[in-house]
Design a protein around this nucleic acid. Structure first.
Lengths: 97, 97
DNA sequence: CATAAACGCAACAAAAAGGTTGCTCATTAG
DNA sequence: CTAATGAGCAACCTTTTTGTTGCGTTTATG
């Protein structure tokens, strides 16, 4: 999941898909300096991580965002952050005792 | 940032640091099947991403969590999620009009 | 129907990531 | 003081990622 997000190209694709409608591969390729196949691979990675969902309509594949995995990632970070806060609080309590 | 989180070993290190006190490299290595150097590399990656902070105390380096970058990542995911919700809302409004 | 657009698949090349080994240095413990 | 522990550095190897090129297939368009 995080590995899928850990790439500039994929993050930019995500950004473009986040605030618009589903887009085809050719459309997503325009605006990058990469070939269509390179972009395709990135899209498949994101799809494999469950972040995107693709639908074939006519001769094009349209990719759209799938918000659930993103929420899960957010929840995970919440967890880490909260655990750390707790650990600090315990440390503080220990030091002050 | 996400790239730094996108590795099992590093995630587990993060998990172990999240709910405890700062730990040395040798300590973090125990419990993995990796060599100390391998773990060291992962720690440096996390440090390079700003997720960890290391302090040399005596002959050991202790690593601790730095919560700010994690909050930033969370905020980013919030953003993407919110933008997508808005996009869906706009689409819905458009369809119903 | 002929052509072009959008895509999938496979082979390949280059670069980056992940990991090990060997050696050295500094710090602590006995 | 001596030995052992905790680390840093560098070279090297293997695997994964990232990207390209070439070719074939399906769908739309003039």
């Amino acid at each position: 999941m995080f590995a899928a997000l850990g790439d500039e190209t994929r993050l930019s694709v995500l950004g473009r898909l986040a605030h618009g409608e589903p887009q085809s591969i050719a459309r997503l390729t325009a605006g990058t300096r990469l070939t269509r196949q390179a972009v395709t691979k990135h899209l498949r990675v994101l799809e494999g991580a469950g972040i995107l969902r693709s639908v074939r309509v006519g001769r094009e594949s349209r990719f759209a965002l799938e918000p659930k995995p993103i929420d899960e990632a957010r929840a995970y970070l919440d967890d880490v952050s909260r655990q750390w806060d707790d650990a600090l609080a315990r440390l503080k309590a220990f030091v002050e005792s």
